[in-house]
């Protein structure tokens, strides 16, 4: 009898199988959101606009994951680079381009910019120093880029033209803004295109190989250092998408520090997702976006100033319960 109890205890308490917890919790959250949205139109609106914020965080979070997987460096300059590219878009429009051509040009410029930044600022540092050196270089880059945005375009708030005419869809008494729906759509599309690229193209495969096993990748002929530059380019494109979506949102103003807060949410999202998993980062970002929006509108003492700390508390709780993040795998390393 005691043996049975002991065995049960071992099973239940000491070696719990947790693989079902994360999916179950996510399904629970999804059911909660759907049921809530069906019962209250305010809840539905807040959920959708939370998902829109989450979509912005998701693009930036996936950019962080992309670089982290390849080099194990958190690119703290990702937000500043996104701000810079958003100003580039603003400048193109100020010169007379309409929104979508400017959007497309900006993505191209962002790719070239990210590629060059890796080549000029990160590669020499990483080759000589450690990952800490690279992190410090990234922080230096953050200060440099943010400073130059202010120097080139000034610190006054600029007005970014809206990509979509403001329009409200009315579905069963619930008002959805076209702005929110498009933001969700574009962020998800950007992440999806990137996923397809990694999954189905030869270069994408080579980039994954270079990220997981750089030495073995070089032996089959993959130019690993170029793959890293390419990764920075793609991350900058995602950042540009996030920046332009953020600038289009009514709650964010186009100014040099525009992405500072968003970077922190994206960082929290990436950590919640496990830092190694793009899917985890997307889900983490959507969760954080929705959670903060619902808290902000339903809990009276959660003022906008308190949202950032709340994001940190969420991150801490996830790390305490599951240190590798929701989708992170504990990596086994062979030396």
């Amino acid at each position: 009898m005691t043996a049975v109890v002991a065995a049960l205890e071992r099973r239940l308490w000491f070696r719990p199988s947790t693989s079902w917890i994360v999916p179950a919790a996510l399904v629970g959250v999804a059911v909660f959101l759907v049921v809530g949205s069906l019962r209250s139109s305010l809840f539905a609106q807040q959920t959708i606009s939370g998902l829109a914020n989450g979509g912005i965080y998701a693009s930036l979070a996936v950019a962080l994951v992309l670089i982290y997987r390849a080099t194990e460096v958190i690119n703290f300059a990702q937000g500043a680079l996104a701000t810079f590219t958003t100003y580039v878009a603003w400048q193109l429009m100020a010169w007379g381009l309409s929104y979508w051509p400017a959007f497309a040009c900006t993505l191209g410029i962002a790719f070239a910019g990210g590629f060059l930044v890796e080549l000029v600022a990160i590669r020499p540092v990483e080759r000589r120093g450690s990952q800490i050196t690279a992190v410090i270089a990234a922080i230096g880059l953050l200060i440099l880029v943010e400073g130059s945005v202010g120097w080139i375009w000034g610190n006054q708030v600029k007005f970014m033209p809206a990509p979509f005419p403001s329009h409200i869809y009315n579905v069963g008494g619930v008002a959805f803004s076209r702005q929110d729906l498009s933001t969700i759509g574009i962020s998800i599309a950007a992440v999806l295109v990137l996923w397809l690229f990694f999954r189905f193209t030869k270069v994408g495969l080579a980039m994954r190989a270079a990220a997981v096993r750089p030495q073995a990748a070089r032996l089959v002929g993959v130019r690993v250092s170029w793959m890293l530059s390419l990764g920075w380019g793609l991350a900058a494109v995602l950042g540009a998408v996030a920046g332009m979506m953020a600038a289009a949102s009514p709650s964010v103003l186009l100014q040099p520090s525009m992405m500072d807060g968003i970077l922190i949410y994206a960082f929290a999202a990436a950590v919640v997702g496990g830092l190694e998993s793009a899917a985890g980062a997307v889900i983490g970002a959507l969760l954080i976006g929705v959670l903060l929006n619902l808290l902000g509108s339903y809990v009276s003492w959660v003022t906008p100033q308190l949202l950032l700390p709340v994001a940190f508390v969420v991150m801490l709780i996830v790390l305490l319960v599951k240190p590798s993040g929701l989708f992170g795998r504990t990596r086994v390393r062979r030396v």
């Binding site: 994954r208 190989a209 997981v212 073995a216 089959v220």
Partner: peptide, 26 residues
């Protein structure tokens, strides 16, 4: 030159087919 290093040097995170595709990368 194809070098199969000690400890195999397969990409254990990738699938069998992806490993083979990488072999033909060049």
């Amino acid at each position: 030159v194809a070098h199969v290093p000690e400890g195999r040097g397969t990409f254990s995170e990738l699938t069998v087919w992806e490993n083979l595709r990488l072999g033909a990368y060049v």
